[in-house]
Amino acid sequence: MIRFEQVGKRYPNGHVGLHELSFRVRRGEFLFVTGHSGAGKSTLLRLLLAMERPTTGKLLLAGQDLGQISTAQIPFLRRQIGVVFQNHQLLFDRTVFNNVALPLQILGLSKTEVVKRVDSALERVALSDKAELYPGDLSTGQQQRVGIARAIVHRPALLLADEPTGNLDPRLAAEIMGVFEDINRLGTSVLIASHDLALIARMRHRMLTLQRGRLIGDGEAGV
């Protein structure tokens, strides 16, 4: 699914985000990327979303070389990916339904199909009764679940999450992680960047540890 081959990222100001990173992620795998602030977690996610390009090495996602991908192809690549942000990135002038429907409207699906899939995604995150509300009417945990529903509604092959539990209390964080595991069980690869080691340890999935842009650990969390 994902292949990093000696991938490096150096910014124009000389800062090195990633140092010759190499690892693979299988289809349907669940893994965490952890490390302190500035370790390179966000850079790694930005490379996977084609928001930035690697300066060295080769990064393959579902067979596509992200170092060579054209600007016009990027939207189509992103349609295979679901993204969950720490700050949710919801549109507050749209209802929950319309927030979740956004990726499907972009795909140009019919109204019937949009309704069917949004209902299904909201049901999966237990927010079926909130469809007509606006994000501002919801709690932080509920807003995060709307973000997750939007990330999975178009059935992506890969789900990326950047500190998805950063603003949540431990009970809500565990609940959100449970949702990610449910999604993973349906065959979606899940990659979560987080520095919440206690939470990661409880989940016993593969964990990549980054430090100053270098991969210093690759193994099962909690072992």
Binding site: P75, R78, Q89, L102, I106
Partner: peptide
């Protein structure tokens, strides 16, 4: 701007 950034992140093309 925020709306546009979100749209681009979830696969919206320039024409969209």
């Amino acid at each position: 701007r925020t709306e546009i950034e979100v749209i681009k992140l979830v696969g919206g093309t320039d024409s969209y």
